[in-house]
Design a protein around this nucleic acid. Sequence first.
DNA 1: GTACACCCTCAAGCTACTAGAGGTTCAACC
DNA 2: GGTTGAACCTCTAGTAGCTTGAGGGTGTAC
Lengths: 142, 142
Amino acid sequence: MLTIGSLANKTGTKVQTIRYYEQIGLMPEPGRTEGGQRRYGDDELDRLAFIRHARQLGFSLEAIRELLDLSDHPHRPCLEADAIARRQLKQVEQRLARLEALHTELQRMVHECSGGQTADCRVLEVLRDHSECLTDHDEIGA
Amino acid sequence: MLTIGSLANKTGTKVQTIRYYEQIGLMPEPGRTEGGQRRYGDDELDRLAFIRHARQLGFSLEAIRELLDLSDHPHRPCLEADAIARRQLKQVEQRLARLEALHTELQRMVHECSGGQTADCRVLEVLRDHSECLTDHDEIGA
DNA sequence: GTACACCCTCAAGCTACTAGAGGTTCAACC
DNA sequence: GGTTGAACCTCTAGTAGCTTGAGGGTGTAC
């Protein structure tokens, strides 16, 4: 039986985060000691590890909720899990493309800065005038 | 003189976002009509365009606040603007590296899915067991 | 003069957590 | 058995960067 603290340690999660996952129904309500402290078993450890791994791969909590649900029904076709992963892959690819465009632009900006006064600063100048950009970088949050 | 709606249109911003920027002091309080509606001039248009462009390049609102401040003082050395841009570039490079690792992993996951039952789903299996991953992808939110 | 698109303020909601206050429990040591 | 101190508890509020909605007022074209 694990305390919330050791579960946190084993999974690289913060204690508060585990309680948060419980609150939003992603983790089940665990057993408690007489004094009211949470105690976890291996099932919960596996579940949390799954969640953390999926978060590291960029899945949203909602997507993870679906994946966990699928994982709980081993006889259902795995098309859905596949679709969720493909969706995530697509998003990652879009973010990659945008981030690469930003990278180019920022690099150019920084390399052209000559170190004079802000009046002549290329960084500020580029920000002032989008038309100086070579690439598209339309979406915010890339 | 522009209404908030046309300013929003010209800059690809939402009306609410402009009011939000005003609220947090990133945009100045504009003039108003007798009825209390906001009216904007070219200075505000430029300022908002600058903000949006910087957001597209991934700068945080705090960084943008600093950049705007520098931009308002044309005789200060541009070292600071350069430092902010370099910081941003570094962050982008880190995010790129992480995102590329995720991309590889997701691709592998998706390609290995054979379309059977969820019990045998590679997607779920990989999520269950981090040790199957080829790459490190330690940080969340990459 | 009236329709109606647009504007106003204020408050709450979103994601995915994180931090802090103020108090209780557990386990080890003496 | 008593005491210490780390770890636990709940609850509330805060973070970024907006977005949404309620409930109402304004501006302008016909």
